[in-house]
Amino acid sequence: MSKKITIDGRELVFEQDKTLLQVARENGIYIPSLCYHEKTGPASKCRVCVVEVDGMKGLQTSCSVAAKEGMVVRTDTETVREAQRMVVNLLLSNGNHNCLSCECNGRCELQDAAYFLGIERPPFIIEERQERDSSGAFILRDAEKCIECGRCIEGCNRLVVNEVLDFGYRGGHTKVICDEDAPMGESTCVQCGECVQMCPVGALIENKYIGVARAWETKTVRTTCPYCGVGCQLDLHVKGDQIVRVTGTEGAHPNQGHLCVKGRFGYDFIYSNERLTTPLIREGENFREASWDEALDLVAGKFKQIIKESGPDAIAGVSCARSINEDSYNMQKLFRAVIGTNNIDHCART
């Protein structure tokens, strides 16, 4: 049953079990938020999503307060704005959020909040320097941009259950750690990149993306991952005709945005000079280019010869995990019905 709520004077209809932030978002009302992500739920840590609710004392975090029939909510009072500006200023005050050079310029939740609140530059700076961790094969960690929202940690532990990341230390020294605060590249991290996808700012970025494109220069193309039979949904971020970045499609089956290291980072093979474009036939130590007809004739002829000499069980087939179900089905059909052997397997099983 739908219910009614008033936000900033607008009467809105909402469904059961929604938070104030969700109702506002669905109705195009922007409330800055940083630690909330729909996959990890409310964390109530950044305190930037605050609103005023009639009858409730003090500011409320809209990400965690459930919408209730008849609530009257204001997202735009001076008290709210003052609190929000303070939170964003406190985060910007380490002086390291340099949008000019940041890969996330244009797709940063902190930048969105600062822009919305009219913050041009942080009014106070508390200098702080931290090393970047570039030891990961695909992921760069920039602790200076980290806002300790914990979304990467939740993603790592609760969503993909790799259990590599956690918070270490305390208070102003709190930071995201891998294992025993090891460099990412020396840790048990498998570089699945879920953390990158969960990061609201530029603290976790894809190595390969650095200096390649700005958010507004790319368009996204949705596709299915070619690596295995799961069929994960991908968004290819394409600049011109080049893929520059891959993210998992949020809210889509079967992967809900999660990807493995291959699906997320293994896209550049398509631009490799070493990629084969014609069949090659071995002659002595070397290969020579051939046409498809010639190559297939050769293989078929050799198969026939082996069957004649040694019987069909002298041949075995391994189907590739990157092929779709229908192709794998046809492969086993070819082996059983045409070649006449049960020697057929699939590489994902071996």
């Binding site: 840590k45 305190r47 939170v87 406190l90 985060l91 230390y169 102003g172 709190t174």
Partner: peptide
């Protein structure tokens, strides 16, 4: 308080530091 802050929320973590 800065030493003891759990560091979870921004106003306390960065506010006490500032």
């Amino acid at each position: 308080y800065h030493h003891e802050s759990c560091g979870q929320c921004v106003p306390c973590r960065r506010g006490s530091l500032t």
